[in-house]
Design a protein around this nucleic acid. Structure first.
Lengths: 202, 202, 202, 202
DNA sequence: TATTAATCGAGACGGTACGTCGAGTCTTTAC
DNA sequence: GTAAAGACTCGACGTACCGTCTCGATTAATA
């Protein structure tokens, strides 16, 4: 996992009354994933999630700013942490995006990720949650890595970080959403290879 | 345009009653594009389109199997025909995908294409319409072109057609949907260049 | 039958083209009766009648001012002519209303009459058609008969014709519509008897 | 009034969430009466009632099994309780049915009652609601009264309760629905008189 | 220990939209 | 000229959800 929503860093617990029920939260996210996989984004409904999780709609609206944000959260919970990449440039780039491949290859992860991407593209709040996660877990480490590779003259310097991000993520997103084809093992490694060939220092 | 909806193979007026009103069809697609740009995919409503087009919902459901299919049709009408590519391999590849760039750079084309992509990813019928268009206007010509380039030893032979398609289309789709950044002029040309570098014959 | 709508008395056949198709009319009324019996008044639809009769909706609207009027026509076609009443006052009164009883006791006549009454009560045109028929076939003969009976001192003179009509017709209409109980043989005779007892000359 | 809708046999607030909004209920019935008077039965629409009452359609369907049942409820709310009849047989019979006359003579009561009767005749649920009310407020007291009068030899014994009911109610229903004539004061008293003359013990 | 504030489930509420059906009109082809 | 076929706009159907609100029950810090 990657701590998608900020847990409020345990702020001294000053309020009266009961605190947030983590068991409710988990049940809601679990139910949300099932509903996402079954009904897609437009067919997704808060009522169904609440009923399936035996939760109240109010509880959902209390903790997420929009249902799209909840969908993204539910999907992010499926994405494992990035592994250590070793020393090889291709492996280090692959390591940044392979958690997505891993999530897409487990259970209904493919469908859940698809709906999360649709939510991020269609809903303001969901988009912010998604881009915040990508920024922290992929974009920022990628920026460091590319700077290092450029300094070592492994790759050229004339690239736009966001263009690279799109070339690395675009293909897998296309596969998850439009073509819906299964994500083969090694798919992300291929993208990393393609990137290095494209930007290789000649 | 690229004749998105099939013209009926029997052009001769054989049935009795009245025929499809082309005025209505145009008004509906126009209204659909406006609604798509304004409200996104989940916020898109048939009622609004019908009202804006002064059309009946029945008329919409009569001619499209689902609202998603109509959205894809509405977007496809924005995409111009592919230009002639000349002789240069990079230009010939670019020519296949540049109509998408052109559509994304005109008026509300960016938003309309985004919603069409979301519809294609979220709705079965819409996905079929979209993939049918891609298959005819991009995938099939691309297959021919790649076979020719491989025969001339410009590119390697060990590629999967669908992987290439995803590498060419994925980045622009990501930009249209997730990052929502404007599509710069020459964006598609860059993808073609990247592809040729990746698959260059060494 | 009682010639509910005026057939134009075979007027010289001067126009071109085919004249009104009597076979169409019969099919429409037959289909209408079936639909009335199956779906009631609020559930009755012109589309269904047209489809069942293999007729065009236009044909229906061409010949009846409203669907209610058509329903009343369809029901009136079920009502036989009044029999000759003989000399007995009770029998003569019974004879005026017994056609309704007869119609209500055949096939789906009960349901058809119910819907016709609902149409007559709910639709302006239907009401006029119904009241025209009642006026000609019941009210007018009843007026003559009551005048004769009053002259012979069989009944009192202080009655309102319309009150009498309501006392004679109200019970059978109530049975057809609200209670939906079967109309027993002799039901109308009982009403006639009750009327004579009520207005008997003492 | 006569408590048309069943008060729930469990008066104690046992369930969790909110209870039925009586404000909404009153607004809906009021709006329904207006719509009934304006548009009749076939022209009556739930959408219009909801809009006029500033209520949601869902709220209507939550509490009534059908729109017809709601129409009957709306009309029953106009009918006052039966007065005390005194000792005179004619007055005691009149007292049972005079609430209908009273309702029919106030404001748009005539039209509202008409539509309620049409609903009761055309819609299963509405018919049940109507017959339940008639059974409790008219038929049952009438049965007791007639038994008493028969025991006192005021009337004959050979009558069918439902036939009597039809003779008492049929005329006023005919007037409300088919003839649409105003209900004169004393109309119900006349029916009671007619009944007593008809069934008088000779 | 009692009070109090926040949480939770359940679900009613006013609304908007769904996809279908029907009304009444109009247009086209067949006879 | 009449009829079948059926497309058209418009409006209503009964259902599903949205996001908000209210209710009784529960839970934990405060008094």
């Amino acid at each position: 996992m990657s701590t998608p929503t900020e847990t409020p860093s345990t702020p001294s617990r000053s309020r009266k009354g009961p605190t947030r029920s983590e068991v409710s939260k988990a049940a809601i996210l679990e139910a949300a994933r099932d509903e996402m996989a079954e009904n897609g984004w437009r067919g997704f409904s808060v009522d169904s999630v609440a009923k399936r999780a035996s939760a109240s709609k109010q509880t959902i609206y209390r903790w997420w700013p929009s249902i799209g944000a909840m969908c993204v959260d539910a999907a992010l919970a499926l994405i494992p942490d990035a592994p250590d990449g070793g020393r090889d440039p291709q492996e280090r780039i692959t390591a940044l995006i392979i958690p997505l491949e891993a999530a897409a290859r487990t259970g209904h992860g493919h469908a859940v990720l698809r709906v999360a991407l649709l939510a991020a593209a269609d809903d303001k709040d969901a988009g912010e949650v998604w881009r915040a996660w990508v920024g922290r877990d992929i974009r920022q480490p990628l920026r460091m890595l590319l700077a290092e590779l450029a300094a070592k003259r492994v790759i050229r310097r004339d690239f736009e970080l966001d263009d690279v991000l799109e070339q690395l993520l675009g293909p897998i997103f296309h596969r998850l959403t439009i073509s819906r084809a299964p994500v083969k093992e090694g798919f992300c490694a291929e993208q990393a290879t393609a990137f290095l060939r494209t930007y290789a220092q000649f």
